[in-house]
């Protein structure tokens, strides 16, 4: 038996080749999907514009040129002006800061907290009882109504928007993580790992977490899209970001009275929200493939 295997061992050239491409980079898998590239570029462009807003935007977000009220999209104002003569493009670029910033903050913090809570309740029965009853309580509110109530209580400010949306999303993330954990815990490879001495921490972070990561990351991209919409919704209802801090929802909301004679006031932010949400969903689809080892080393189409 041993002679045979040593003979087989001496397949050096193949080995070297395999060693070299031990693992294809995750980005290559992601970018095999053209829609994912487009979505990524769109979101990255938005992000960059938001970060560099003071330099990119042609006007200040609150600069008013009363003489140029309701200018249609054109050379001086690419996306037109609103009822106070403010440049819509500039307001939207600054608005991207609020909208994307809020969404990013909400998704990142609720991802961390929700994953931690979900893992804990998936593993420890007593903690599970407590955590799940609290999430039940928080999830009993319809998402927007819950956010509305919290905002009405705390008053409009960007910080409070983040807090309100966070409270709405954390229980949902925790629920998903808990569910996946409970399923995975019963898998044979978890038992096998325990049999080989692995402790709870090791099982959690080395076996459970990586295995729920790919559905989770997809959920986070959807959550990002959902948060953009929720933030826009809160701002549209007038209890989101305060008037001096533009956000896409706010621009949309301010324009709704003039929809008949100044269509660009509602269409432009609407399209921005639509594209951002669509990109998130498409990017999520691409990211799903990155987490799946079966996608690696596949021939390019």
């Amino acid at each position: 038996m041993n002679k045979e295997t040593t003979a087989l061992e001496e397949t050096k050239p193949i080995e070297a080749a395999v060693m070299r491409k031990r693992r294809e980079s995750g980005f290559r898998v992601l970018f095999r999907n053209p829609l994912a590239i487009l979505s990524f570029l769109y979101l990255a462009g938005m992000g960059l514009a938001a970060v560099a807003a003071p330099w990119v935007a042609p006007y200040g977000p609150n600069y008013m040129d009363i003489d140029a009220r309701f200018t249609a999209p054109g050379f001086h104002h690419w996306l037109g002006t609103d009822h106070l003569g403010r440049d819509v493009l500039s307001r939207m670029i600054f608005g991207a800061r609020t909208t994307m910033g809020v969404s990013l903050a909400v998704v990142m913090t609720s991802a961390l907290a929700g994953t931690a809570l979900g893992l804990i309740s998936g593993f420890f029965r007593k903690a599970d009882e407590i955590i799940m009853r609290i999430t039940d309580l928080l999830m009993a509110f319809p998402p927007l109504i819950g956010g509305l109530a919290i905002m009405a209580f705390l008053g409009p400010s960007v910080k409070n928007v983040v807090l309100a949306l966070w409270l709405v999303t954390v229980p949902r993330v925790a629920r998903i993580v808990r569910g996946e954990t409970l399923v995975l815990r019963e898998m044979t490879f978890i038992k096998a790992a325990q049999m080989m001495k692995a402790g709870t921490g090791r099982i959690m972070f080395l076996h459970i977490l990586p295995n729920i990561m790919s559905p989770l990351v997809v959920y986070f991209t959807l959550l990002f899209a959902g948060t953009i919409m929720a933030e826009a919704g809160l701002s549209f209802l007038g209890i989101g970001s305060p008037p001096e801090v533009p956000s896409w929802g706010l621009v949309l909301s301010e324009g709704r009275y003039y929809m008949r004679n100044a269509w660009w006031l509602t269409v432009m932010p609407g399209v921005a929200i639509f594209l951002a949400v669509l990109s998130c969903n498409l990017l999520g689809d691409g990211i799903r493939d990155v987490g799946d080892p079966r996608q690696y080393g596949k021939a390019r189409k």
Partner: peptide
Amino acid sequence: LRKVRGRKISMIFQEPMTALNPLF
């Protein structure tokens, strides 16, 4: 018990398909 597991007693399972972590 963790000192016993793997070192003194270890185990193989009925379904090799699911006994290995698919991600590593």
